[in-house]
Nucleic acid binder design. Sequence first.
DNA 1: CAGTGGTCTAGACCACACA
DNA 2: GTGTGGTCTAGACCACTGC
Lengths: 234, 234
Amino acid sequence: MTLTADLPRYKEVKAEILARIQKRIWRTGEVLPSEHELADEFDCARGTVNRAMRELSDDGVIERKRRAGTIVAQSRVRHARLAIPLVRSEIEATGAKYRYRLITRAAIAAPAWLRARMELAEAARVLHLQCLHLANAQAFQFEDRWINLAVVPGAAKADFSVISPNEWLINAVPFTDAEFAFHASRADKDVARMLQVADGDAVLVAERITWLERKPVTYARMSFPSSYRMVTRV
Amino acid sequence: MTLTADLPRYKEVKAEILARIQKRIWRTGEVLPSEHELADEFDCARGTVNRAMRELSDDGVIERKRRAGTIVAQSRVRHARLAIPLVRSEIEATGAKYRYRLITRAAIAAPAWLRARMELAEAARVLHLQCLHLANAQAFQFEDRWINLAVVPGAAKADFSVISPNEWLINAVPFTDAEFAFHASRADKDVARMLQVADGDAVLVAERITWLERKPVTYARMSFPSSYRMVTRV
DNA sequence: CAGTGGTCTAGACCACACA
DNA sequence: GTGTGGTCTAGACCACTGC
């Protein structure tokens, strides 16, 4: 064991295992010693080794299978934690003043593309909202939001001119699953005007679909100007 | 405790705690019962409750402090796991054939913007590489790579026409920290030509800086055509 | 000071997959 | 079968922090 600071034991073990993998003492695809053996070597309980290895497995560094043992991950897929804050928190964290504006609001029959995307029934009705989140006077995010009224009927009566759909939904509806996707796109005329950027400029688009027990709750498309950075640390 | 499937106990506990938060039985900012009390209620060991709450804390659902106890998170920041695969794996996973092409290669003095970005010394020398990753014959990712020769001298002699810098680095250098950032941008002439898209088209740019024990190893800027989706599930 | 969560221990039983 | 990791237990000590 290398000399380490005053870290918790399981972090020391984790660091040591990682170091051996990085030094190629244990090579890609190779089987690591069992938890039992490592617990003996590091002179600690198996539970401690188990926690270290579980975290490494979560990080994508190793792969574990019962009976087969633990191997150094082949795929070299690393996992990063991406923090997804509320827009308001994100803006206020920079010290800027958060402002919000509702642009449009309409309860309509769900268009075909949305029915496909959210797996909605033919006759589904949705609430369509467009709104803008500003940092000081600067456009920060344009939000194009669709809410499934079958799952969230209360949305029809909510006053989205004072609270953003984002925050209203968080307080009104729990959700069980969510899917995020990011891509780059060119701003169409509406988005460009809203974000105060040139027509056709690049925007970062984050799409999010949320379910409550398999039932689709909401679909949101959030557009950011090209100056926006989404950052994560591994 | 709700009736649940044959899940591990800690997952049942986790689900029940989450359910109570979502049902507003425990409200935002409110202090939850202590691990001890919950262990009594759920009739399990404190370690089991601890694991459930630790995971909820990792997910950003609750916040824990010694002595102060556990509260339902205020910020509503949710955390998603973003898997970052090797380009090759990502392409091959779709069934497409992976191909790689080195475009340019030059060992030069680090330009000022890069020195600032990577925190390099004035006289630092770097290896600059540009390369293309293709899925079948289709351009998938354009990689603009800078390697710090002070930390990785071996890179000067590596043959990057047969192996991508990405894969070479993974096999040659361990790293301890990495930072990712995403943004949208418009393709300049070079990038557009490489990605076979129109000049000025939107591209998704992923930047990555990697360190080995505080020493900057490499900076990479990876550009994807606007058809590319980066997906994550919460 | 007292109570919280953070960590650790030395056991234990079990599901699973391989021989 | 047999050995692996997955989980769980009933304790324990400790660091931190609010009182």
